[in-house]
Write a protein that binds this DNA or RNA. Structure first.
Lengths: 228, 228
DNA sequence: GAGAATGCGGAAGGAAATCTTCCGCTTACT
DNA sequence: AGTAAGCGGAAGATTTCCTTCCGCATTCTC
């Protein structure tokens, strides 16, 4: 899963356990960056990885290098998913829908690339990530063009609009909260209906309308959205 | 502007300058809570109000009481706006649109009531705010019902869906950033199109489609979204 | 399987950010 | 003019997070 970008450096290869720990650290960091932003305490990341802080610092001497590593891994995965969506789906519209519904990786990419100034500052200086990001946007652009050419996506939006919409829809509060996930799902479908070309009928929403009484009253969890 | 909820307490009235400062503190807190979340340093709030920290602490002995005061003021204003929108607009649909486009007050209400667990923890214990919130939701509910009765709003959404959509759309990153404001505006219009009842034509989006090249590359500002 | 090298955990010290108090001076009320 | 209320902001206390360090454990090599 975790891509190895250090394959061609002259450094000696990591010992097996070290390599395993490194992957677990990146995994934990990805998960925590997604849910709590790129400023979670290092100790929390270490705990999430089942590892001591010392180990974390040995592998990533500071937060920046961790963020860089996470960004590379994440953008690579997101790009792969996007390309798969572009190629494997029958229509441009389906590719778009699959993208929008796709995994947490996309959510993290959006965070890193559009929502967190701190992370973006770091990531934008990394050429590897930049190349991945450019490819990602190119893929998005072509999916949008395809969907518009086939007449399923409204013509007056650009790939930039779509990216902005991704950013809004993916900034969920609590990714594990079932209630709010259901609401987010419905909001996404409404947004998709808004994106349809005129005349294209919507499939409607599944389930029952949500009454005010069901607005999810946030459960408290240890860490606030930081500012959110 | 700042509503006085202490009118009937037995305490002696504030001196004129104190009262002025109190209002400025609440104003600054509202503005900062909106842009940076309810955990901004007290000192920053004081500075924003043109006041020393001591003054802030004399009036609000801790963050909780400040948040409570802000929430009361804010929900009262939002409710007033919502009721105005419900009454003054010709159709339920127009009321809804006006609400969605309405001021920063609504944005802050969403933050306090749906996006920030920390704030919600505090606010939910305050009866005054709860009553305001209930009225607000009741108003939303009736606007939704009106819009559906007149056939402009799709029938398969409830007021809870609308509230959730508000929450998504209003969680903007940088409220003062012109580029992202433009994108948010367009996203909002797309969402509104998604909310239309079948057969109701959209007006289309103003301006040109946004290309990928125009995705706003976040500018760094002193305080990250915290979480976000 | 033994020796050497690499890696590990997590306590502890340090740094930074934020909270909160306190008191000499100022301003508003009567 | 007298008095009570209010003010600012430096300074000390506190909390939170960062980073280092070293005795012990694991892996690799031959």
């Amino acid at each position: 899963m975790t891509t190895d970008f250090s394959a061609s450096t002259g450094e000696p290869p990591l010992r097996a356990d070290a390599r395993r720990n490194r992957d677990q650290i990146i995994g934990a960091a990805k998960s925590l960056f997604t849910s709590a932003g790129p400023e979670v305490p290092m100790e929390e990341i270490a705990r999430g990885a089942g590892v001591g802080v010392g180990t974390l610092y040995r592998r990533f001497p500071d937060r920046e290098s961790l963020i860089r590593a996470v960004a590379r891994d994440n953008f690579a995965n997101t790009l792969a998913e996007a390309e798969a969506a572009a190629v494997e789906e029958a229509t441009g519209w389906d590719s778009l829908v699959r993208l929008l519904k796709s995994s947490d990786e996309l959510q993290l990419s959006v965070h890193l690339g559009m929502s967190s100034p701190r992370a973006w500052d770091i990531v934008k200086g990394d050429e590897v990530t930049q190349r991945l990001r450019d490819s990602l946007l190119a893929t998005l652009d072509s999916v949008v063009a395809t969907a518009q050419a086939e007449g399923s996506l409204r013509a007056d939006v650009g790939a930039g609009d779509i990216a902005a919409i991704f950013a809004m829809l993916l900034r969920r509060p609590a990714p594990d909260d079932l209630d709010s996930h259901r609401l987010a799902e419905r909001a996404l479908l409404v947004m998709l209906d808004g994106l349809r070309a005129p005349g294209r009928p919507s499939a409607g929403l599944p389930g029952e309308p949500i009454p005010v009484s069901e607005i999810p009253l946030l459960k408290r969890d240890k860490r606030a959205a930081r500012d959110g």
